[in-house]
Design a protein around this nucleic acid. Sequence first.
DNA 1: CTGTATCCTTCTAGATACTG
DNA 2: CAGTATCTAGAAGGATACAG
Lengths: 122, 122
Amino acid sequence: MTVRFSEIRAMPGQPFTEGCPTRVVLDHIMGKWGVLVLLSLSDRTHRWGELRREVQGISEKMLAQTLRVLEADGLVHREAYPEIPPRVEYSLTPLGRDLMERMLPLVEWVAIHSDAIVGTDD
Amino acid sequence: MTVRFSEIRAMPGQPFTEGCPTRVVLDHIMGKWGVLVLLSLSDRTHRWGELRREVQGISEKMLAQTLRVLEADGLVHREAYPEIPPRVEYSLTPLGRDLMERMLPLVEWVAIHSDAIVGTDD
DNA sequence: CTGTATCCTTCTAGATACTG
DNA sequence: CAGTATCTAGAAGGATACAG
């Protein structure tokens, strides 16, 4: 194993204890919609409407909320073009790209093993 | 970037579309408590009471529920010893250990960057 | 096209009490 | 010690309508 959790836990600030900032970030990026939006953006820049279609099942409300949180976290960049009709493009910030480099191997694993896992029981 | 999402998306079964098994697995392992329980177990085998203490803030109900889901998924192994008082030990299965190898680098990233992220805004 | 605002339902999850 | 059962408050999330 490349990293051990005990080493991570021993880092300054005691990550993943109650009330710790890591818990908040974990909720943002590991939440149902956070992951799916970040995945879409890891591919390329997307417009609002594209994200609505690509992240299947997300409501406008949850898309707006998710994007606002990820933008406030500094993971997503929002670029609005003052045109009629309006055009807004969402992309990953450098920090967001750095994050996705760590997340994509995990997501790939999930894609490969999900059938077996859900097939086992659920 | 080591993997691209577009390649993952193109895999058989169209991962991460609506109703896909990957969505279910994602919810199990990326959920708030799923991650924290898996992290504790990635370190070593734990008894029920140890998990309650280590995963700070989790209720008995959520711990039981989380463990049952992860066990059904084949990620966690439950070993009950027929003693008085009873002793039950939880550990990762080989599949679970494989998963955590991909998850730990991500978790390490979160531990390192969380202060900056939450500091930015929330 | 890109959102916001509101209502309303469903589901999560914490607290409490209890059992083998 | 290792759980289960029940109840309930609150949050999450969907539908709809509307605005810039």
